[in-house]
């Protein structure tokens, strides 16, 4: 029963799967990064984004860099 309730790690996610060669994860691509923020500007979890661990880490890094430069909000 526990297995049935577990979320699939390979299934389609809310934001679709991502090719790991995608060059869009960059702190200057603000419109793209904004898709991975909640309305309060929190970063979506890996379950929600469907990213692999490395991509999620790059996403986190990019969003934090954008926040530091005043391109994205810390809270909205």
């Amino acid at each position: 029963m526990a297995d049935m309730n577990r979320r699939s790690s390979t299934g389609p996610s809310a934001l679709g799967s991502r090719n790991c060669d995608d060059p869009h994860i960059n702190y200057k691509e603000i419109a793209y990064l904004a898709k991975f923020l909640t309305p309060q500007a929190n970063i979506y979890s890996r379950k929600r984004t469907g990213f692999c661990a490395q991509c999620q880490r790059e996403l986190k890094q990019a969003i934090k860099r954008a926040r530091h430069m005043g391109l994205m909000p810390f809270v909205a």
Partner: peptide, 21 residues
Amino acid sequence: HWEERKLAYPIKGRTRGTYLL
């Protein structure tokens, strides 16, 4: 010159700024 834009939050009392890349 990369962009002149409104900042997401005020920085040192400024609401707009120019980015140099």
